[in-house]
Simulated assay, not measured.
Amino acid sequence: MTNQSPVPVPVSVALIGFGLSGKYFHAPFLKVNPCYQITAVMQRHGEDSRAMFPQAALFRDFHELLRQANAELVIITTPNDTHFQLAMQALKAGKHVVVEKPVTLSTNEMAELMAYAEKNNQLLVPFHNRRFDSGFRTVQQMVQSSLIGEIVEAWLQFDRWRPQPRVHWRERALPGSGILYDLGPHLIDQALCLFGKPQAVTAYLGRQRPGAQVEDMFEIWLAYETLMVKLHAGMLVCDPTPRYLLRANGGAFVKYSDDPQEALLRQGHLPNNPYWGTEPPEAWGIMYKNPASAEAFPSLRGDYGLFYRQLYEAIRHQQKPPVTAMDGYHTIQLIELAMESHRSRQWLSLN
Rank of each mutant, 00 (worst) to 15 (best):
V97P: 01
V98K: 04
V99T: 11
V99A: 12
V99N: 05
V99Y: 07
E100G: 06
K101V: 00
K101F: 08
P102E: 14
V103W: 04
V103S: 05
T104Q: 04
T104I: 11
T104F: 04
L105T: 13
T107N: 04
A111V: 06
A111F: 03
E112D: 06
E112G: 02
L113M: 06
L113Q: 07
L113N: 03
M114H: 00
M114V: 02
A115F: 04
A115R: 10
A117C: 12
E118I: 01
E118L: 01
N120V: 06
N121E: 15
Q122K: 10
Q122I: 03
L123E: 04
L124K: 12
L124S: 12
L124N: 06
V125T: 07
V125A: 06
P126H: 10
P126R: 09
P126T: 11
P126V: 15
P126M: 13
F127P: 01
F127D: 09
H128D: 02
H128Y: 09
H128M: 10
N129D: 07
R131K: 07
R131D: 08
R131Y: 08
F132T: 02
F132E: 13
S134F: 12
F136V: 14
F136L: 04
F136Q: 08
R137C: 06
T138H: 05
Q140E: 14
Q140C: 10
Q141N: 11
M142V: 14
M142N: 05
V143S: 02
V143M: 13
V143H: 00
Q144S: 10
Q144N: 15
Q144Y: 07
Q144P: 00
S145N: 14
S146W: 04
L147N: 01
G149K: 00
E150H: 04
E150I: 00
E150G: 00
E150V: 02
I151C: 06
I151P: 02
